[in-house]
Structures are given as structure tokens and as C-alpha cells.
């Protein structure tokens, strides 16, 4: 599969069509693997979806004691294999993006597999199909990137860990990598005064933090 996903936060309108559509995927019917953050609702209407980034060296697979998480030839990181999953939640806790979920009823890890049964047959994943604005797009690099005025970035730095992903973030910067510590790619752009002013989080932000991003069903 040459196609991959492109996440463009600038375009996100926070509608959560992706979250709803994710539930229609055959491998995890009724469960959504996506969350959409309000960045800081008190200040802005900006929002951002998080889907599985499909790391080239997936942390979830590296920490799995049972080798239950497989990567397809195309680089898609699959859901845990049901017979192997030990129910240990290592992957859920280790993923730097907070993506895998733990299903307490089924004693099973669940995660985005890029709608493998759709995408392996040439269909777009559900989230990228429905996204009204193209904040989540699915296609070939050379088809999507030339159309955009944003830069594809797929290297993320979490402290000492550098993660390269199959999925790209489309960013309005020159940066080659996203540094998640501090202020990420926008580090240095905030003034000291901003940093020293304590800001309280809007209850509507908290709402997402406390439920949509909970890592178990």
C-alpha cells in the first residue's frame, strides 16, 4: 500500500465525523479509535484529531511481551492478535501518542489498523473518507503533498525517543521534526509572559481529556 494518511490540524473543524465513522470499521464495530482535542477552547476554536500514526518502529509492538502486535508489509501496525494478547496493557501505556485502547470486556487491546480490510482493497479508511475538510486525508504522498501549502512531517521527538511514522502531520512551519516536549515545533514562539500566566483549562477541554482520551472502554 503506497497510500498513507495525512493529518492537517489547520483544517480540522472539530466536527468529530472521524470519531463517529471509526465505529463503522469492521474490525472494531461500535468502538472508535480516534479522539479529537480542543487545543484550548478558552482561547481558540482550534481542534485536532489523533489517529494511530503507524510508527516505523512501533513502541506498542516493541513493548508487547507476547509479540501480538504485527506490522503489515505495507507498514500498517495492526490490532493485537486476539489469541496472543495477554491483556497486560503495556502497549496502551507505552504509546507516545496515546492511541491504543484496552477493551475491558473483551480483554483485548484495540487500535486503528488503517481500516485494513478497506485500504488493502483500495478503499479509503472510514475517517479519511468522511472528513469534510481533508484534515484527515488518505492517498499517495505525491498525490496529496503537491496540492497543499503545508509541510509533511513524520518525525516526532519525545524526550530521548525519536519516532518516525508512516502517517504525516501537515504543518505550517519549516521544521523537519515535531518536538513534543516544550512547545513542539512552535518552541520559542511563546513569550515568557505567556508562559508565566497560569491559564485554566476550559471545562470543555477537560471533557475530552477525561473521557474520549481514556485508554480503555
Amino acid at each position: 500500500m503506497e497510500e498513507t494518511m495525512f493529518i492537517d490540524p489547520q483544517r480540522c473543524i472539530g466536527c468529530r465525523a472521524c470519531v463517529a465513522a471509526c465505529r463503522e470499521c469492521a474490525t472494531h464495530k461500535g468502538y472508535s479509535m480516534i479522539f479529537v482535542d480542543y487545543i484550548d477552547r478558552a482561547e481558540t476554536t482550534a481542534t485536532m484529531p489523533t489517529v494511530c500514526m503507524h510508527c516505523k518502529e512501533p513502541t506498542c509492538a516493541l513493548v508487547c511481551p507476547a509479540d501480538a502486535i504485527k506490522v503489515s508489509d505495507e507498514g500498517v501496525v495492526m490490532s493485537a492478535l486476539k489469541p496472543r494478547c495477554l491483556d497486560c496493557r503495556n502497549c496502551v501505556n507505552a504509546c507516545p501518542f496515546g492511541v491504543p485502547k484496552y477493551n475491558t470486556q473483551m480483554h483485548l487491546q484495540m487500535k486503528c489498523d488503517m481500516c485494513y480490510e478497506r485500504s488493502s482493497e483500495g478503499l479509503k479508511p472510514m475517517c479519511a473518507s468522511v472528513c469534510p475538510t481533508g484534515a484527515i486525508s488518505f492517498g499517495k504522498y505525491e498525490q496529496i503533498v503537491p496540492l497543499r501549502r503545508t509541510k509533511p512531517v513524520n518525525v516526532h521527538v519525545f524526550g530521548n525517543q525519536k519516532v518516525e511514522t508512516k502517517v504525516y502531520l501537515m504543518l505550517p512551519t519549516d521544521a523537519d521534526e515535531v518536538k513534543v516536549d516544550g512547545c513542539g515545533v512552535f518552541e520559542g514562539m511563546l513569550s515568557r509572559a505567556d508562559a508565566e500566566t497560569p491559564t485554566t483549562e476550559s471545562w470543555i477541554d477537560t471533557q475530552v481529556e477525561h473521557s474520549d482520551k481514556a485508554n480503555e472502554f
Binding site: R16, A17, A21, K124, P132
Partner: peptide, 9 residues
């Protein structure tokens, strides 16, 4: 193919 959350549900 695009839909909003109301359309999906």
C-alpha cells in the same frame, strides 16, 4: 464520500 457526524450517525 465525505460526511459530518450527523450524517455518519
Amino acid at each position: 464520500g465525505r460526511l459530518c457526524p450527523k450524517g455518519v450517525t
